[in-house]
């Protein structure tokens, strides 16, 4: 997928740690110290029990394909590509792209195992993406 230089997401104080992590090649997901649930997107409290005692954990990067569309709403030079929601092994879901495989219904089967891979978006932001897991 070609880059979209005009748009650049920017971190907030509550999400900076996440983007610092992806830049280092680590996927950090917060876990509640009190109730042990993992949650996403980042915020400095647990949305299940409201505890402020939470820890950003480096997670396995293992995930499965939960759902997706293959977008034909494209910018110049783009080919149709999947916009997916993946389910992390630790529980939370996140939007992403599936890379390293054809962007077709045949290649993209729901519940297929995936693993995280990092792609630089710009000098500040590195995105977690997912590719088919190696058997």
């Amino acid at each position: 997928m070609s880059k979209q230089p005009k748009f650049s997401p920017a971190a907030t104080p509550e999400t900076q740690h996440y983007w610092d992590g992806t830049k280092r090649g680590e996927l950090l997901i917060q876990q509640c110290d009190a109730c042990a649930s993992y949650y996403f997107p980042p915020r400095p409290f647990c949305p299940k029990c409201a505890s402020r005692k939470v820890t950003a954990k480096k997670v396995s990067g293992k995930a499965t394909l939960y759902s997706y569309v293959i977008s034909h709403q494209l910018r110049a030079g783009q080919e149709p590509f999947a916009i997916a929601v993946v389910e992390l092994a630790e529980g939370p879901r996140m939007m992403s792209n599936i890379i390293g495989c054809p962007q077709t219904p045949e290649a993209l089967q729901l519940d297929m195992p995936l693993e995280v891979a990092f792609e630089e978006w710009d000098e500040n932001i590195t995105l977690p993406k997912f590719r088919p897991a190696k058997a």
Binding site: S8, P9, A10, T12, F81, I83, M95, N97, L127
Partner: peptide, 16 residues
């Protein structure tokens, strides 16, 4: 560009 949508969904190519 600092909204949660801008950070965690928009970079993956959503178009409305």
């Amino acid at each position: 560009r600092q909204s949660l949508l801008a950070q965690f969904e928009q970079p993956y190519g959503i178009m409305g």
